[in-house]
Amino acid sequence: MWPKSVAAFLWGLVLAISLMLIVFRILPAAVDVKLFVGLMLGFCVWVGMMTFCYSRNSAKAASVVCVKWLMASSLINALLFFSQT
C-alpha cells in the first residue's frame, strides 16, 4: 500500500497543479474568480487523482496512466505559456 500511497499523493499533487495552471490560463474570468476556482478545483482534482491511483491494482499501473496525463497537460501548459508571452 505504501508505493500506491506515494504515487497517489505525488501524482495527485503534480497533476492538480498542472491542470489548475491550464484552468487559470484559459478561464475567461476575473483574476480573483480564477484564483478561487483554481484553489477549490485543485483540491478536488488532487483527491480525484488519489482515488484513481488507489483504485488501480498497483502503483506502477497508476503511474503509467498519470505520466501520460502529465505529459499531455505539460505540453498544453507550455503551449499556453509561449502563446501568451
Binding site: M20, F24, D32, L35, G38, L39, G42, F43
Partner: peptide, 29 residues
C-alpha cells in the same frame, strides 16, 4: 484544506503565474 494546505497551490501560482511576486498574488486574492 483551504485553511491548512492552500500554501501548495499558492506556491505553484507564485512560481508559474506570478514569476515569484508573492505580494502580487496576495493583492489579486
Amino acid at each position: 484544506l483551504i485553511l491548512n494546505l492552500a500554501i501548495v497551490f499558492q506556491l505553484a501560482f507564485v512560481v508559474f503565474i506570478y514569476q515569484g511576486d508573492r505580494q502580487a498574488l496576495f493583492n489579486d486574492a
